[in-house]
Design a protein around this nucleic acid. Structure first.
Lengths: 139, 139
DNA sequence: AAATCACTCATACTTTCGGGTGATTTCACT
DNA sequence: AGTGAAATCACCCGAAAGTATGAGTGATTT
């Protein structure tokens, strides 16, 4: 989560810098301010849409009851992984989403299984629901 | 949908004009281009987020449709397998429980995935819940 | 009788999972 | 300063899952 925000910030900054550079180099005479503003607006609107989609995706799926999670000593990262696991993502997809390697995800999931006392991902999801760690979106 | 796009376009245009007006009136000397670009970027990123939220909201509300479960034409056997699947059983365990071969279960699951338009068992469970094919235990 | 469908099973193949082990780094606690 | 938990990543290996294709049987429909 924290990484996501950081990423978006970095992307935003880089884009601004790039726009500046481009502007000073070649377009300062040809490009009017309106057009410049328009380009920025469109770019960041696209970014905003992406951010918004990411945001809602997490909220619209499974919620996490962090209180009960703490009783099992599940770490934050493990909860994140569990969340994505329950959403049906593969290990590789989870790795991509969290910007870590596949091996790391495997480790997280392995520990998750130990703490939940299961040996398969479907069981993990099942158990997490039973323990109200994962709360379905609706009813 | 088309109206939405039009609306956003209009809003974007109006905002641009407003920004222009403000810029020419009071800020042309004080405000540097970087800051100006930054303001536009932030504003439109916010707009983008809002757009993104709207977008997903509609999709997620349409997702739950009890009639869709029937339209999928899931056979009895496939439903049986789906239930056991959701309970966290492995293919081999499902095969044993239903007194058929592992390959048969694979075939059933394969067709199940096609009908549910998924490619993994966790996704199948997730989707089945969304479509109210699977009803979570307890309440 | 022919066509269709659900169910069954098989072979062969690729991909993903999960277990085991070990290592490094960071950070909080004492 | 040492301890321990958490997070990161790596390598190996076997098991499970999933894909593709084909095929046989019984029941139902046309």
């Amino acid at each position: 989560m924290k990484r996501s925000y950081l990423l978006y910030g970095v992307v935003a900054g880089v884009l601004l810098v790039v726009l500046q550079a481009v502007q000073y180099k070649t377009m300062i005479r040809d490009m009017r301010l309106e057009l410049y503003a328009g380009v920025i607006a469109i770019l960041f609107m696209i970014i905003g849409v992406v951010v918004g989609l990411q945001f809602v995706k997490r909220k619209s799926t499974n919620a996490v009851d962090s209180t009960k999670a703490n009783q099992l000593n599940l770490s934050e990262r493990e909860l994140e992984v569990l969340h994505l696991l329950a959403d049906g993502y593969s290990n590789q997809e989870i790795a991509d989403k969290l910007f870590v390697s596949l091996n790391t995800i495997k480790t997280h999931i392995s520990k998750l299984y130990q703490k939940l006392n299961v040996s398969r991902r479907t069981q993990a999801v099942q158990k997490a629901r039973d323990l109200a760690i994962l709360i379905p979106p609706k009813g």
